[in-house]
Amino acid sequence: MDYDLTSKTKLTNEQKAALGVGEDYEPTTLRAIKVGRATYVKGIEWGEMPEGKHWIRFSGNSSWGDKGQRGDQRVDVLNPAILKLVISKATFAKAGEYRGTLSGKELYKDKYGGSEVGKISFRLFVNRDQLPVRLITEYTLKTHVPKDDKLVKATEHDIVDTRYSDWGTKVAIAAPPAGEVVDFDDLRWPPIDDNPISALTDSAQSAKVRRN
């Protein structure tokens, strides 16, 4: 399934202070385009990019969103198996809405080490055809943040609100211009100072989907 996804993140002033950025700082909007087996991502903080390159291509041994997620949304309801799992874990259901919780291990299995994510609360809204139109998830995440030139353990609290649209509509999803793309495997690993770790509080996404 191909898709064109845009993700916007909001940080609290407390989180901005922890990252050492000003109150006017706004994280870069993230965009991910999947065409075939390649995913092109723009807006991730990866240090210095080669001149004229704005997109990173993930393919082959490198992957993007390989933990059952798309962008900041860790619950990939565009995957029929995960959508079925989410609905089965609902403890509240009414016309067009499901609410409940699931664990990272249930979602990712042992393959992806789901222990980094504990319980994930969700509110899933579907249309008359039972296709997702909105998904709100909330969870805590074990991570690391920079402090005094070191990485220290921290707990991150995320709320992600994703909207899905254009079901049944013909859409054209194309890869970015080749001249603006660099392969992930060709990039150097950035030093910590070039790649601040974001403590995400609220993320909104919109997705345009094309079924293969």
Results as ranks from 00 to 15, higher is better:
Gly71Arg: 02
Gly96Cys: 04
Val126Met: 06
Lys111Ala: 15
Phe125Asn: 07
Gly113Pro: 08
Pro80Arg: 00
Asp72Tyr: 11
Asp76Glu: 11
Pro132Gln: 06
Ala81Gln: 13
Arg123Phe: 12
Ser115Cys: 12
Ala93Val: 10
Val86Pro: 00
Gln73Lys: 02
Glu97Asp: 10
Lys89Trp: 02
Ser103Pro: 02
Gly118Cys: 14
Lys84Phe: 03
Arg134Phe: 09
Asn127Arg: 04
Leu131Ser: 09
Val117Ala: 03
Leu83Ser: 13
Arg99Leu: 15
Leu78Gly: 06
Arg134Ala: 10
Gly71Gln: 01
Arg128Glu: 12
Leu83Tyr: 09
Asp110Phe: 10
Gln69Tyr: 00
Gln69Asn: 05
Gln69Gly: 04
Glu116Gln: 13
Asn79Asp: 15
Lys84Gly: 04
Val133Cys: 08
Tyr112Glu: 06
Ser115Val: 15
Thr101Ala: 10
Arg134Lys: 15
Asp129Leu: 11
Val77Trp: 00
Phe122Pro: 00
Leu135Gln: 06
Ala93His: 11
Asn127Gln: 06
Lys109Gln: 11
Tyr98Pro: 00
Gln73Ser: 07
Ala93Trp: 09
Lys111Leu: 14
Leu135Phe: 11
Pro80Asp: 01
Asp110Thr: 15
Leu131Phe: 07
Asp76Ala: 03
Lys111Arg: 14
Val75Asp: 02
Ser115Leu: 14
Ala81Asn: 10
Tyr112Met: 03
Thr137Tyr: 05
Arg134Met: 12
Tyr98Glu: 00
Arg70Glu: 12
Phe122Ile: 02
Val75Pro: 00
Lys89Gln: 08
Val117Thr: 08
Lys109Tyr: 12
Tyr108Arg: 15
Leu135Pro: 01
Asp76Trp: 01
